[in-house]
């Protein structure tokens, strides 16, 4: 009988201890983000979509067609082609297969001119997989308007 009373007391005490925690959480700070209406402030370093920003001074791409990003990509999802010779060398194709991309950021790291950057954008779901191959126009459109320095390695104090 006494053992039963002890066990009953333990059960009530355990229940009370647990409920005390949940009630504390009930009156505490709200944690939920109402996603489609409210959005989390994504950190500036977030590995989101890739984009090709346009140089504001010259109005052309920053890419110097060195193929480093294509070579370093572990998933081989970047495809670059260029036409012309010497100073007239132009990008004719810059495709990124965003469905294969693993958002590792190695292309951003090796780019010598910061021509390829991450933008903090993530809402890219689609009905058709073919839409996930981003060509030059898509990547230019995805670039942010204001200049950003994302490819800078090891800069102290970057946000």
């Amino acid at each position: 009988m006494e053992a039963l009373a002890t066990r009953a007391w333990e059960a009530v005490a355990g229940l009370y201890a647990g409920l005390r925690v949940t009630f504390r959480a009930l009156v505490g700070r709200k944690n939920t983000v109402m996603y489609p209406l409210q959005k989390v402030n994504v950190a500036p370093r977030w590995h989101g979509l890739l984009a090709l920003p346009v140089d504001p001074e010259t109005g052309s791409d920053k890419c110097i067609i060195c193929f480093q990003c294509e070579r370093v990509c572990p998933d081989r999802c970047i495809h670059i082609e260029a036409g012309g010779k010497g100073k007239d060398r132009l990008l004719t194709r810059f495709d990124i297969e965003m469905d294969k991309c693993c958002y590792c950021g190695l292309c951003v790291e090796v780019c010598p001119t910061e021509a390829i950057v991450f933008v903090p954008h993530y809402e890219t779901s689609t009905y058709n997989r073919a839409n996930l191959v981003y060509d030059l126009d898509d990547l230019r459109r995805a670039a942010p308007k204001e200049p950003i320095a994302h490819g800078v390695v090891a800069m102290r104090g970057r946000p």
């Binding site: 977030w46 590792c104 950021g105 991450f118 800069m155 104090g157």
Partner: peptide, 18 residues
């Protein structure tokens, strides 16, 4: 690091960013 689950942060001989 820029990643939530997969942060390619360590590099041979150090880390990527401060």
């Amino acid at each position: 690091t820029g990643g939530r689950l997969h942060h390619v942060y360590f590099r041979p001989g150090g880390v990527y960013e401060d």
